[in-house]
């Protein structure tokens, strides 16, 4: 159960997020359910529920070969199940020009 303060915090964070299919669209829902935060390319995204890393990469439409996923400052493999309170970051590994 979220306290008022935590809910407000989530609400604020969610309002920054981009709305794409599979993502939460309503700040009210966001506050009610504890979603999963994902930082990708410098932006915060919120997912309705925890999921496998492979599923997360599918949702973001990015390749597993070109990306690494860090959960709570640790690298995780595609079969790792992400929890709601995990701090998740997706890192693009391709660089150059």
């Amino acid at each position: 159960m979220l306290s008022g303060q935590a809910a407000d915090k989530l609400l604020c964070a969610h309002q920054r997020c981009e709305t794409i299919p599979g993502f939460l669209t309503s700040p009210r829902r966001c506050a009610k359910k504890l979603p999963m935060y994902v930082n990708w390319e410098g932006k915060d995204y919120v997912f309705e529920k925890p999921m496998l890393v492979s599923r997360l990469l599918q949702e973001l439409k990015v390749s597993a070969e070109g990306h690494l996923v860090v959960a709570n400052n640790r690298l995780v493999t595609e079969d790792h199940r992400l929890d709601a309170d995990d701090s998740v970051k997706v890192i693009r590994v391709v660089s150059g020009g």
Partner: peptide
């Protein structure tokens, strides 16, 4: 300045092959 660089496109193609 690397936006749209061919190298990145090539890396994407090779990445798909690697998958």
């Amino acid at each position: 300045f690397s936006k749209g660089a061919k190298t990145i496109t090539y890396k994407g193609i090779l990445g798909s092959l690697e998958e």
